[in-house]
């Protein structure tokens, strides 16, 4: 049979190459070589914030990104990527996204955006790294923190100044003092960017865990042209790929050498204040569309069921 090549684009860089190789091999083997993954790392072909567009047009067959990248185009993007206060454990996040109601909303939203929703992956720690120790939110009011929009909005609520910097400028930004800290990922990500050379103080915010979720989308035309067997192979392999990344992040965050970071935790009342302030962002997201209102409703119901609201 003819080989079918799938253009698969992730937002990760070289750090997950080993996992990617395993994924490519798994697909090739399970399909007897009929299905081949042509794998592209972050930024190689399409900028991550244009993934949704590229996969709907057929430039790419499958993308692996997160909702924040396409939140300007797909209403639910920001919510499903992870709002501050949204969930506190992987199990909780999984249960939330696997509920029929939420799954239906996501499927509908991504179908409307001209894509096929294939499934989700779960990130890991997403906390604050600073040059100087942080003992409370009050400490942050005089520092400049790099954060992206939703977290930035919550920090803004407390009068904490935020700036946006692309990832490759974080190291210099922090070592020279353009920023005093960043909310970008967990210990393993910070270590990879060598940020521990610029700032060692890692503060758990207890705001959101996992700090982000990942999404796999396919181009409808190329997806529908696949045989059911090939679809099943891809779905299985993608689920494993997502799980491997999550495990790699978890192990990486555990395994960061002792002394690399000095860990601290934000006082419980500050974490609570953050979560409460995040309600403003939730309501703002709910106001963007009817679908968003429904998804936020589900998120609120879940938070209440967990006893957090």
């Amino acid at each position: 049979a003819d080989t079918v090549r799938i253009r698969f684009h992730t937002f990760y860089g070289t750090e997950i190459d080993a996992i990617a190789d395993k994924f490519k091999d798994a697909v090739k083997e399970a399909s007897n070589g009929e299905l081949r993954i042509q794998y592209f790392r972050g930024g190689e072909l399409v900028a991550s914030d244009q993934f949704a567009d590229a996969v709907s047009k057929g430039t790419l067959d499958i993308v692996h990104g997160h909702g924040g990248y396409w939140s300007g185009q797909v209403d639910i993007g920001n919510i499903e990527a992870g709002l501050p206060g949204g969930w506190t454990s992987v199990e909780e996040a999984k249960a939330f996204f696997e509920s029929p109601e939420v799954n239906a909303l996501l499927t509908e939203a991504y179908t409307d955006a001209g894509t096929v929703f294939l499934g989700k992956g779960y990130g890991h720690s997403y906390d604050l790294l600073t040059k100087e120790p942080v003992t409370s939110l009050e400490d942050l009011k005089t520092r400049k923190i790099r954060a992206t929009s939703n977290v930035a909005k919550v920090l803004d609520h407390f009068g904490i100044p935020t700036v946006y910097l692309p990832a490759q400028e974080l190291y210099i930004g922090m070592s020279t003092g353009v920023i005093d800290g960043a909310i970008y990922g967990g210990p393993v990500e910070y270590e990879q960017l060598k940020l521990h050379e610029a700032g060692q103080h890692y503060t758990y915010l207890n705001m959101l865990m996992p700090g982000w979720t990942e999404t796999f989308l396919a181009n409808p035309e190329s997806w529908n042209s696949l045989s059911d067997e090939h679809k099943a192979i891809l779905e299985t392999a993608i689920a494993q790929f997502a799980e491997d990344i999550h495990q790699w992040l978890a192990a990486g965050n555990e395994g960061v050498a002792e002394g690399t970071f000095i860990y601290a935790t934000l006082p419980a009342e500050d974490s609570k204040a953050l979560t409460e302030a995040a309600q403003g962002v939730w309501q703002e997201e709910a106001g963007r569309s009817e679908r968003n209102a429904k998804l936020i409703e589900a998120l609120v119901a879940n938070a209440k069921a967990q006893g957090r609201l």
């Binding site: 914030d49 939140s71 300007g72 930035a152 803004d156 946006y164």
Partner: peptide
């Protein structure tokens, strides 16, 4: 490309300005 952006009233998500 532009028409699609108009259709969803696309906004930028980099900073809180949006």
């Amino acid at each position: 490309f532009a028409a699609e952006s108009w259709a969803v009233r696309e906004y930028s998500n980099k900073s809180i300005w949006q």
